[in-house]
């Protein structure tokens, strides 16, 4: 039994405390926008926010949460898909297959939370998600475009 605050709502889930947050979100809360890609925090497809900072949920046990943290998933990033990163992503047609993109978007949104004006070097350092389709050129453009947009 664990208390969680997800996308602004307090909820109780039944799960072993070793269960990674990813699987609680996907299987118990039905928040399937957050994806499984590797299970070892390598690819970033499962990136969500804890108190606004990007976290890889596939290795984050729910037992490590106190219940006070604000967990945000792609579904809760904005009420209507209008977060600046989402706007930029649509405008530039960033996704290809799209599977890694919720994680990519959460990583970028997390970067902008801590650094509203990232340089290319900041992007290289902070955005380490894998995209096998190879959307990186547009991801980079998208970060710079998102900086100019308002929620």
């Amino acid at each position: 039994m664990a208390q969680l605050k997800v996308n602004g709502k307090a909820i109780t889930v039944e799960a072993d405390e070793a269960t990674p947050l990813l699987w609680v979100l996907r299987e118990q809360l039905g928040l399937t926008g957050t994806k499984y890609g590797c299970g070892i925090a390598q690819c970033g497809a499962c990136t969500i926010h804890i108190d606004g900072a990007p976290v890889r949920a596939c290795v984050y046990p729910i037992g490590a949460l106190s219940g006070e943290e604000e967990i945000t998933t792609i579904e809760g990033l904005s009420p209507d898909g209008s977060h600046p990163v989402q706007q930029a992503w649509v405008e530039l047609d960033v996704p290809q297959c799209g599977y890694c993109q919720p994680g990519m978007i959460m990583a970028v949104a997390g970067l902008l939370n801590s650094n509203p004006n990232p340089t290319d070097e900041d992007i290289d350092l902070e955005i380490t998600n894998i995209c096998r389709c190879g959307t990186f050129s547009r991801v980079r453009k998208g970060v710079h475009l998102a900086k100019t947009k308002k929620a």
Partner: peptide
């Protein structure tokens, strides 16, 4: 594109 940036796009795993 739109469903792929909001998390609404369902894949078979979902």
């Amino acid at each position: 594109t739109v469903g792929k940036v909001t998390g609404e796009q369902l894949y078979a795993t979902d």
